[in-house]
Simulated assay, not measured.
Amino acid sequence: MKENFSRRSDRVRPAPAQHRPAPPEPGALAAKVRTMAPSMTRSMQRVAETVAADPAGCAALTVTGLAERTGTSEATVVRTARMLGYPGYRDLRLALAGLAAQQASGAAPAITTDISVDDPLTDVIAKLTQDERQTLADTAGALDISQVEAAVSAMASARRIDVYGVGASSLVAQDLAQKLLRIGLVAHAHADPHLAVTNAVQLRAGDVAIAITHSGRTVDVIEPLQAAFDHGATTVAVTGRPDGEVTQYADHVLTTSTARESELRPAAMSSRTSQLLVIDCLFIGVAQRTYETAAPALRSSYEALAHRHSPRDVR
């Protein structure tokens, strides 16, 4: 079922809540740049990468000065600021000044150094730990709570929940489905794209489909989500690209962050960390909403596993 993803479904995605999200916190600026850069023009990328790499220097520049430094135009600088979530360049400048102050005091890390092939394991551990910590903080700061709450509400009352993911994301999908099964919900993870689509067309209103894709353009994940969307299921996208193709078939979009990709640190590593945080938030939210049935189901699963692994009388 190959589709042209520029064509929207006949079903119209609900309009988002009418509120302006708060601009990113200063410490989340670098993560925002990493998330949005792939969908920016090259000139906008130059602006974004420059301000993330040198917040103190850029905070001292006027819009004209930053345009000259990056070889772009004032209009490009303003568009970049808005794409990063700031109403205008003045707001971006204030965030840059705040980030520079945090870095100077040690409250926020400078740009993380890439892992080198000759790094000792002590440095590898330290760098990975810092990157993972920052990725989790960036993801938590960027999550739209209203979107999370809407996804949790749909899942808590769902007749059935299907989760789609391939590659590293398939491991995250399996983790979520397993957790939901343990609290008594009907949940399935699909890594095979053919099975995913054939199951998706069976979904109806009252069901939930969740697509996990960091890039936002994984065809094997988009196709079943589109099928579920077209058949009336509530759809959720967990993605690092809020403007990716997958979001046009998602009722609710949950954005993840990721550390900078390098030769020894593929994007799949850090994206998995942020995806796991999001699906754990979903699981806990659902467990809270369904506590009267979730708690007994969870106790039963614990008891069954404990019994299975207890010593047996072998004759």
Rank of each mutant, 00 (worst) to 15 (best):
Y249M: 05
T70C: 13
E68C: 06
L171K: 03
E245M: 06
P109N: 05
Q134W: 07
V63E: 13
R289P: 02
S170R: 08
V278M: 13
P242S: 13
Q174P: 02
V236D: 03
E245V: 00
A56V: 03
V314R: 14
S262G: 11
T198G: 02
A59R: 00
D192N: 14
R79H: 15
P266S: 11
A15L: 14
A294L: 10
S153D: 12
S157V: 11
D251T: 10
E74Q: 10
G88H: 14
T235A: 03
D251L: 07
V278A: 09
T113P: 03
A67T: 00
A151Y: 01
S300D: 14
T273G: 01
A304Q: 15
A140W: 01
P109K: 02
A53I: 10
E292A: 14
D119Q: 10
D138C: 04
N199Q: 10
A48W: 05
F5L: 06
I125M: 14
T70F: 03
R133H: 12
C58Y: 05
G206M: 08
P14H: 01
T234C: 03
A304R: 08
A205I: 02
F283S: 12
V286R: 06
A104T: 11
E263A: 15
S310F: 06
A268Y: 06
V208C: 00
S153W: 04
S300R: 15
M1T: 08
S270T: 14
D138W: 12
A110S: 11
I161C: 02
R133I: 07
D207W: 04
V236E: 06
G240T: 04
V201K: 11
A177N: 00
V172H: 07
S257H: 04
A294Q: 06
L305A: 15
L128W: 11
T239H: 02
A60E: 13
L264H: 14
I222P: 04
L298R: 13
L143Y: 02
T139V: 01
L96H: 01
A126I: 08
Y164P: 02
G106R: 03
E292P: 04
I284K: 11
R42T: 15
T80Y: 01
D118W: 06
